[in-house]
Structures are given as C-alpha cells and as structure tokens.
C-alpha cells in the first residue's frame, strides 16, 4: 500500500514513443511492450521527475476536467497498475 507521502518514480529501463493517442513503451532488457492510454501517458510524463501522488493529481487536474475525488481514485488505481507492470516503483 502507498500513502500520500510515497514518492513514485519511473523504471529507467523503459523507452516510449507517442503515437496517435497512445504512448507505446518497450522494456530495454526484456523486450516487453505496453501501450499506455492518454491518462497513463500523462502520468508517465509527469513522472519524468519523481513525485508523490498529491503532486501528480494536482498536475493532472490542471490538465483534465476531472473532480478531485475521481482523480484521486483513478490515479491511485493507475499507479498500482503501472507498478504491477514494473513501469514505476514507489
């Protein structure tokens, strides 16, 4: 479980390319690949510098028309999903 003070960061072994509405990503070592949707791609972009979930939410709410409550729930879910894919770590 992660809390509001948790700092999230990218796994440096991924490279990505924005194509159409997706961010297509490839793992340098394993060759595993994944396509991120617009929200997850925006989150990945924000994590260019490690940061905590509150900061991520603030930046996403400035970009997308979404309520604080919905944003909090969705970002928590996306971060866990991205952690499961070894895209990010806390």
């Amino acid at each position: 479980m992660s809390g509001s003070s948790t700092i999230w960061q990218r796994d440096a072994n991924w490279v990505g390319s924005h194509i159409d509405d997706s961010l297509v990503m490839l793992h340098l070592e394993t060759g595993k690949y994944v396509a991120l949707n617009r929200t997850a791609a925006a989150l990945w972009d924000i994590l260019e510098e490690p940061c905590g979930q509150p900061e991520i939410e603030a930046k996403l709410m400035a970009r997308f028309a979404v309520s604080a409550e919905a944003c909090h729930a969705e970002i928590a879910a996306v971060l866990e999903q991205m952690r499961g894919l070894s895209l990010v770590s806390a």
Partner: peptide, 27 residues
C-alpha cells in the same frame, strides 16, 4: 527483433536512442 546483431547492439552505447527511434517508426 529487427536489430542486426542484437546482442552487440544491446551492449553498444546508444541502445536507448536506437530503440526509441524504432518505436517512433510506426508513427
């Protein structure tokens, strides 16, 4: 799998840039 001599390429400098360029190719 498209890279020539992939083991060598993985060891050479610039592998990240090579793969990023290839990933961008479908765009």
């Amino acid at each position: 799998g498209m890279l020539f001599r992939p083991r060598w390429m993985a060891a050479l400098p610039g592998q990240r840039a090579r793969l990023m360029a290839l990933l961008a190719l479908p765009g």
